[in-house]
Design a protein around this nucleic acid. Sequence first.
DNA 1: TCAAAATGTCAAGTATATATTACATATTTT
DNA 2: AAAATATGTAATATATACTTGACATTTTGA
Lengths: 67, 67
Amino acid sequence: MAKNLALKSARAARDLSQQQLADIVGVTRQTVNAIEKGDYNPSVKLCISICRTLGKTLNDLFWEDEQ
Amino acid sequence: MAKNLALKSARAARDLSQQQLADIVGVTRQTVNAIEKGDYNPSVKLCISICRTLGKTLNDLFWEDEQ
DNA sequence: TCAAAATGTCAAGTATATATTACATATTTT
DNA sequence: AAAATATGTAATATATACTTGACATTTTGA
């Protein structure tokens, strides 16, 4: 998977550190880091939780428009 | 998680069986069944693959509007 | 410029998504 | 009604998301 810059950017817009976002959604900072880096393939439940925290939707943060 | 009726309905609209959808996205029929039933929490990659197959987006099939 | 905070990364462990096999019931088709 | 197909479900196995703990580097702010 590619880097998730939409996520990184949405997190920055809310002025949250990886650690803070991780705490809110109940995972570790390493997990948030890995998702932003594109290292793995999170569960949709975690994606939804991240989206809600950042005021975005799944399409905003996890849908790639180009096929 | 609750039953995913949006998925069940989108699959029906394309006239695909659970088995056919599973084959296309590369999982087993039990996995598709469990997702529709709401038994577990698929990876976002699998969600995206299902959405593409059914001509829907993540928001269409995996975003619950009520908080 | 120095310390603190944030980020990147790695190794080893745990939890859970997904596979495999199998069987039962429901639905559709002939 | 019988046969085929679709769906529901369960037990055991495997792959991988995610944790824990640790250390290194980069960035931020006083």
